[in-house]
Write a protein that binds this DNA or RNA. Sequence first.
DNA 1: ATACTTGTGGTCAAATTTACTATAAGCATA
DNA 2: TATGCTTATAGTAAATTTGACCACAAGTAT
Lengths: 239, 239
Amino acid sequence: MFEKHTDTASLKIVEQSAMNAITIDCAIFGFDNGILEVLLVQHAEGISKGKWGLPGGWIKKKESIDNAAHRLLGELTGLDNIFLEQLKAFGDPDRFPLRRVITIGYYALIKREDYDVKAGFTASDAKWYKINEIPDLIYDHNEILDYSLKQLRNRVRQAPIGFNLLPGKFTLLELMHLYEEVLGVAMDKSNFRRKILHMKLLLALDEKQQDVSHRAAKLYKFDPEIYTKLTEKGFNFEF
Amino acid sequence: MFEKHTDTASLKIVEQSAMNAITIDCAIFGFDNGILEVLLVQHAEGISKGKWGLPGGWIKKKESIDNAAHRLLGELTGLDNIFLEQLKAFGDPDRFPLRRVITIGYYALIKREDYDVKAGFTASDAKWYKINEIPDLIYDHNEILDYSLKQLRNRVRQAPIGFNLLPGKFTLLELMHLYEEVLGVAMDKSNFRRKILHMKLLLALDEKQQDVSHRAAKLYKFDPEIYTKLTEKGFNFEF
DNA sequence: ATACTTGTGGTCAAATTTACTATAAGCATA
DNA sequence: TATGCTTATAGTAAATTTGACCACAAGTAT
């Protein structure tokens, strides 16, 4: 289970089977209604009781740090095969108030439609926050989150990881809005359409939007085969 | 002092004042005569005696990991203010043979003209290796080095960090050769010249090459002021 | 004086980007 | 059913950038 960050309590939680000076903290991004959000969890006890932070936890002695991150992520969201990348290690000597703990930051992208808060986490435990309405977080979690966002903005321009935030089928305009929101820029829909279609990374489906009060747009899906072919040759996702 | 990697010996080296399950390993790149090289150090004792690896060391209890990396780098090369960036943490459970140790990878770029192997490191202790002539390294250091190289190739296209490998004054062709070597591509000197000058990132000096047996090229230097201005606006260093 | 090497300044066609305009398709309302 | 509203989709023309060249300049070496 992802630890609900605690202070003194967390010290007791470290079992024999876990590394005791290294944690994992993860910024989980979701995209809902055109808005980029991040999943935060609330401290249950300790000196930071009531404060919010990134979900995190300990690394077991026998698992790799990537595995630990995937395990923790699965325990919190119930999701497997989530897009997850390591950011870097954060190691200020007094980032953690009680003793020296280095944390390894990760960021994850999930499809909100698949997500469901798991048992053990009530609505008051875990909550989505808009990325420009982030409160004061515990420890150095604001710094980690800022870095995550920076990294997300960089990576999204290098590789088509943005798809991990969208449902399986999406319209070109939804995709464009995602890029606009993540990168914080305005785009021209006509030019975006031309550019993205020209990459041949999308598969046009024989399906259209439903229940919209205007002309329905064609739905597309992302073609992972073509993607891997393109990444081998190296390509650029600038907009 | 950067540890000359040892196995059993290194365990004793960890003093009270250092974290005992986290190390730092650093890929130090240099550019000499048109060739990209990396600085490796040799094991003095232990089960990997004679094998080469990345220089590394322990993190003191009271220093940040960035500071630790800078300190270690200074101890080995005698250089301050070196360009240094964290890569990420490497944490396979059995990457280190004797117990669980997570390492934080860094990469650094240094100007070979400034570099001098420090006392305590003889020629047989530390040596520059061409990046396509890397031997089998200890532990997971080949993986770390591969990742460094990948990161260097990525970063060099995003930001003008390549300058950290060149002397203070350089010709446009030297700069181009650096990019050709790092990225492994061939470029057109005329087009390169046009593109790089168009960025207005270089300051033309009133000086020319000396002692060359052909027409001397104009020397340029990198203008950090213009660079910071440009980075704020965001720019692209693709070639 | 001549050949040789590298530096520097161009050209031109192709490709891409940017800023628009125009039309199509569907829904909502009068 | 006609009219307008909204979004989807297609196109166009100018500006910019790229890629593949060529030509001459400025030095060295013979």
